[in-house]
Computed example of a mutant assay.
Amino acid sequence: MNKEFEFIIKSLSFDENYNPSENTRITTNFANLARGSQRQENLRNTLKMIDDRFNSLAHWDNPKGDRYFVELEIISVEMDVEGKGDTFPVIEILKTNIIDQKTNERIEGIVGNNFSSYVRDYDFSVVLLEHNKNKSGFSTPDNFGDLHGNLFKCFVNSTAYKERFNKSPVICLSVSSKNTYHRTEYQHPVLGVEYLQNEPSMTDHYFNKMGLQARYFMPPNSVAPLAFYFVGDLTGDYTDLELTGTISTMETFQKIYRPEIYNANSVAGKEYQPSLNQQDYSLTQIVYDREERSQLAIEQGKFTEENFIKPYQTILEQWSANYVL
C-alpha cells in the first residue's frame, strides 16, 4: 500500500502588483520578471502581451481584438512527507482564467502551463552534474527522474488536486535546441501546425516519467513550435479557448526568455532545428536575467538536497520504489 503524502495548494494572483514570496521558487519565469527597478513595468507589459496574443488567436466574433483578457494564478504546492505539519514547496505552476468582456463570463483555463520544481532543479543541477563529473561522455543515471515523476503523478491524482481542478494539467515548454523537428500536414485551428521530432529529447523522457506525453505545434503567426506535455487527448480534452490561454501565456514567456527561438525574425521551415546561438531575432522591452536564472537553479537544487532529499531520503526512496497508481 502506498504511503499517502499530504499536498497543500496555495494560489496567488499574478498581476502588475505581484511580489514573489520568500518561499517561491525564484527561478520561475514570473518571479524573475517581478524583481528589480522595472518590476511593475515588466509585469504590465508581459500581461499586455498575453492579452494581445490571446485576442489575435481568438479572433472570431472579436472585431476590435479586445474581447478577452487573461487572469493568471500562481499555484504553489507544498508537501508534508511525515504528516507532522512540516512542508516543503515541491511544485509551482500557473492557472489561466479567461474573462470574456462581451458576455461578462469568467472561463476556467488550463492548470500547468509554466512548470517549476525544486526536485527537478535537484535532478538537473545536482544529480546530473555529479553523475557526469570527470566523464568523457554524457549519460543519465538509471533511475533519473523516477522520484520526481512519481511525486508529480501522486500530486495530480491526489484528493487536493481533484478537489481544486477539473482537468489534467498541460505544461507548455520550449522545444529542444538539440533536436530537429519536421512539419506535418496536420493543422489545428488554435494549436496550429503540428511538428514531429527525430527522437525524444531528455526533457521528453523526464516528463514521460511524470505520466506526460508530448506533441509539438506552431500556432498561427508564431515563428517556432512549442512543446505541449499532457495526459490523455490534447486536442479533444480541452476547448479552443482553454488552449488559447495556454498558448498566449507561454509563448509570451518564451519570447522574453528565449527570444532567439520565439522572437526570431524568420519562421520555422519544414525542417527546423532551434538555436540559441542565432542572432537574427528581436528583443522585447521586458527585462529578464537569464544568467541569474541559471545560477539560481543550481542554488535551489542544493537547497532541495539539504532540506528535502537528505532529511527524507529513506522514506522517499522506499515510497518511490513501490509507487503505483
Rank of each mutant, 00 (worst) to 15 (best):
P311A: 07
R53P: 01
K302F: 04
Y206K: 01
Q254L: 15
E242A: 07
S176T: 05
L196C: 04
I98D: 04
F124I: 02
A34H: 10
D142C: 02
P259W: 12
V267K: 15
L212I: 10
P20T: 12
R293T: 14
P259K: 11
D51P: 04
L47K: 09
S201R: 01
K102W: 09
Q285S: 14
Q254Y: 08
Y257E: 15
A34D: 08
Y18H: 09
N62W: 11
F217D: 01
S248L: 06
V190M: 10
G112I: 10
Y229T: 02
F207V: 02
S266I: 14
N166W: 02
K95C: 10
A321D: 13
D233K: 11
S294D: 08
N19H: 08
Y281N: 05
K3R: 15
F217K: 00
E108Q: 15
F155I: 00
N134P: 02
F228Q: 03
N263H: 14
D146A: 07
V193W: 15
K84V: 07
F144T: 01
I91A: 05
C154L: 03
Q213R: 13
N97S: 08
L128F: 05
Q197D: 04
H188D: 15
I247A: 15
G112Y: 10
G65P: 09
N45A: 09
V90R: 00
N2G: 03
F138K: 08
E305F: 08
G192E: 03
D233S: 15
R53V: 03
E71W: 06
L196W: 03
E251P: 13
K302E: 07
Y195I: 05
I50P: 05
K302P: 00
F207N: 05
L173T: 15
D121L: 02
T46M: 13
I110C: 13
F138G: 02
E292W: 06
Y257P: 00
S266F: 10
N113W: 06
Q300A: 01
M49V: 03
T87L: 05
S13F: 08
F5C: 01
E163D: 14
L276Q: 06
E185V: 07
F253L: 15
E78A: 12
T314R: 03
W60T: 15
D289G: 07
S11F: 07
E92M: 05
L129N: 11
Y238C: 09
Q40P: 00
H131N: 11
T203L: 14
I110E: 06
Q213K: 15
N322W: 03
D289R: 04
N97H: 07
F69K: 03
N150A: 12
Y18S: 09
R290W: 05
H182T: 11
H188I: 12
Q279N: 13
V81P: 14
E317Y: 12
G65H: 03
S158C: 10
K270I: 08
S222P: 08
F207P: 00
D240R: 09
